[in-house]
Simulated assay, not measured.
Amino acid sequence: MAHGIEAKSVELRTAFLSRMAKFAVDRPRLVVTIFLAITALALTYLLLNIRITTDPVQVMPNTPAKVGLSLLINYFRNYDYSTAYLVIYGNKSAALALLNAIKGQDYVINAALSYNGSDMYIITATVNQQSLSDKLIPIYLSLREVANEVAREYGSKVLIGGSPADKYYFVLGFEREYYGLIIYVMIAINIVILTIYMRSVMIPLRLVATVLMSITWSLALTIFVFQELMGIQTYWLMPVILISLLLSVGTDYDLFIVSRFREEISNGLSDKDAIVRAVEVTGPVVTGAALVLAMAFASLALSSIYILKQVALAVASSVIIDSFIVRPLLVPAIIVLLGKWNWWPFYNKSIGAISSTSEP
């Protein structure tokens, strides 16, 4: 009985995915246009509404510890201030000038100058933000600007440490490395490996583009649910987790479909028939794996910690969107539109001759 129900479920899923693929190959331009329009709307919503926080307290539940911290911040501020340290080398006049400049900043509660008998002067400045606050980043930038002005005027060297510097370099340093280098290395590695494996440049480029579409949709959904409905900001590591995970998961799912598509092409089917057949055969495996992964991450939503809830919704929704919408609809549409150019530039004549018989 159980096997019969399972077989029926797979059969229904196969039929559903087959209908989606047939719709896509019959109306490829319409499908691509709709996906581009939805992605443009989702991206616009993201850029206009996303509010990132680097403060983990902001995405924690209202536990007694968070309530206590809130009381300290609102009613006993002097117990929750953080400290910045500025070190000046070998110039007392520069140290005194910097001390006066620091005291003039509205975020500085008090500042004192210390001298350790060597060649360094140290300014200890108490600032009016707690050590996890997002506002420490602009405070660090302001301190650096003031320090640079004094350093240029007196020809001295100034170093900045303490909570503002820790926050700035941990968050912005990581973001610059990830969004400025690591993400491009991940994409490049995927493209190179898939190009060698599939003997095509267009397939990995299309893969990356469709994965980024899924990420955009799921991020927009997550921001709407948490920011608009619940009033909770987006934690800064959530997009990093989502992008890194979906780039690998989307690659696996896409390889199943495209590998089968190539086999069907070699067996003599046209592009349209081959991609529909590929979705029919691999669809139940892909969607089954996606459901398992999505449910595993969705279980994080049971946590009381909003960081984990955000990851749960973002990853689960992106996997479902990618496997149930993007792969059976958008991928067949793009493949049909590209035709023989799917295999560019390593064009195989035997595959190309068959592929060229299909109409984009």
Rank of each mutant, 00 (worst) to 15 (best):
I305H: 09
K167D: 03
V32N: 08
L98G: 10
F324N: 14
Y179M: 09
A290Q: 02
T33R: 05
T287K: 07
G161R: 10
S318H: 04
A151K: 02
P332W: 01
M213F: 03
Y79T: 09
F226A: 03
V171L: 04
N78C: 11
L96D: 15
F174M: 03
A278D: 04
I223V: 11
T216W: 10
K92M: 06
E175S: 06
R176F: 01
Y154S: 07
A220H: 01
M60Q: 14
A298K: 09
Y184A: 14
A40D: 11
V185G: 08
A2Y: 08
S299Y: 07
R176G: 14
S114V: 03
R13F: 00
E228K: 14
F76R: 13
E153I: 06
L72A: 15
M230I: 01
Q310C: 05
I88T: 08
L207P: 02
A7K: 13
L246P: 00
K103D: 04
Y75D: 13
V336E: 00
G162L: 05
P28N: 12
I321E: 04
T44H: 13
M60C: 12
N267V: 02
W344N: 03
N342A: 06
T251Y: 10
D106M: 05
T63F: 09
S118I: 08
D119H: 14
I73H: 05
F324T: 02
N74D: 15
V158S: 04
F174Y: 12
E175M: 02
F23K: 12
G180R: 11
Q58S: 14
S142E: 09
L229G: 00
L43T: 14
R327T: 10
R13D: 10
M60T: 15
L313K: 02
L47H: 14
I203R: 09
A353I: 05
R29I: 15
I109F: 00
Y168P: 09
K92N: 14
W236K: 05
E228D: 12
P164F: 08
I137V: 01
A125V: 03
I139C: 05
E228H: 11
V127C: 05
P164W: 01
L219I: 01
I215F: 10
K92A: 08
L99I: 06
I189P: 15
A289Q: 06
Y235C: 00
S131V: 04
V10F: 10
S214H: 09
V276G: 09
L269V: 02
D26G: 13
R19W: 04
L69S: 14
G4R: 14
L205D: 03
K167C: 07
N91D: 15
I137P: 08
F346G: 07
M60I: 12
D55V: 13
I215K: 11
A314I: 04
V276M: 03
I50T: 15
P284F: 12
G339C: 07
L46D: 15
A65C: 12
D254Q: 07
L247R: 08
Y235N: 06
A290H: 08
Y169L: 07
R327Q: 15
T14A: 13
P332R: 03
V146H: 00
W341V: 02
L98A: 09
I50E: 01
M186W: 04
R260Y: 07
V292W: 12
Y45K: 13
A21R: 12
E359V: 09
M60F: 02
L132R: 03
I320L: 15
I305Y: 02
A301T: 01
Y235H: 00
E263A: 03
P239V: 03
S304P: 13
D106N: 03
Y75G: 07
I215N: 08
R27D: 11
L329H: 06
